[in-house]
Amino acid sequence: MSVIIITEQSENKIKKQSLESISYGVAIAKQLNLDAFALVMGATDENLSYLGNYGVKKIIHQKNIGAANSDNKVATKLISEICTQHQAQIIIFSNSLFGKAVAPRLSVKLKAGLVSGAIKLPETGNSFSVKRSVFSGKAFADVKISSPIKIITLNANAFETMKSSDANAEIVESNIEVPAGTINIIETKKNEGTVSLTDAETVVSGGRGLKGPENWGMIEELAKALGAATACSRPVADSNWRPHHEHVGQTGVAISPNLYIAVGISGAIQHLAGVNRSKTIVVINNDPEAPFFKAADYGIVGDAFQVMPKIIEAVKNLG
């Protein structure tokens, strides 16, 4: 029996979010006295044995993945075969685009109960239950999984990466034949900006208080100085001041970065629904009554146009 962590790569390197999933899966394996294995799909530029540092015993490396990256039906078939081969009892995904598309399918295929968006290690006493975020971050639910095989997708930034040893993991090549898919990609487009919103550890976000798109320079400058992604409130995207993929909230992207800095955003409940899982929230708003201050850890009641340049300077001076 094993815990298998399904990892993802970006530019042929294991993603940070996957290192979080690995650390999480390893902790569960310890709790249950199981072995933790990581599945790595596709070619890689890394010597994967370093994943042993995170407590993984074995790396299952399936180099040939065919259409699995773009076709979740194919990916499900591949992952399910590997999980069965290695007697997975618990399967961990990141709650990412890939995890959201594949984990539900795998749940049906293996008849394995799924908890998506987990934020904590499971309770594994008499029964197996996992805490997840519900009501768009306004509450949590403790969910029991009753099937023998269990699948969890882990929220970003919900579990710290942990190096627990200096051991190397054993690499096992896997050569499962991957069936062809029926989805054809016609065109791909990359968003501008270097840091992806859902992966970002820090997000700097602007609202209608910034008056117009011409004033986004300071948001971008602070984001750049912090290595952060940029985001915005819904009316800002609806007015085409900013691209739609930056819109966070109930109807936009839900994020859970370490640090969320909101500038000129009132903090409407639908906006909070997308950002309230952030660890630290900073609000800059000239209205002391803005509801966002109630959800914030740090706040400045002041004019963004006065305050932001000084903050940018102070960040640049940090070194």
């Binding site: 509450a139 969910v143 109630k294 400045i300």
Partner: peptide
């Protein structure tokens, strides 16, 4: 395959620290 045992609400924020 799953059942909800219970819900809970996030702890109230300690309050904003104003600068």
């Amino acid at each position: 395959l799953t059942t909800i045992n219970a819900f809970d609400l996030p702890p109230a924020k300690a309050g904003v620290k104003l600068i």
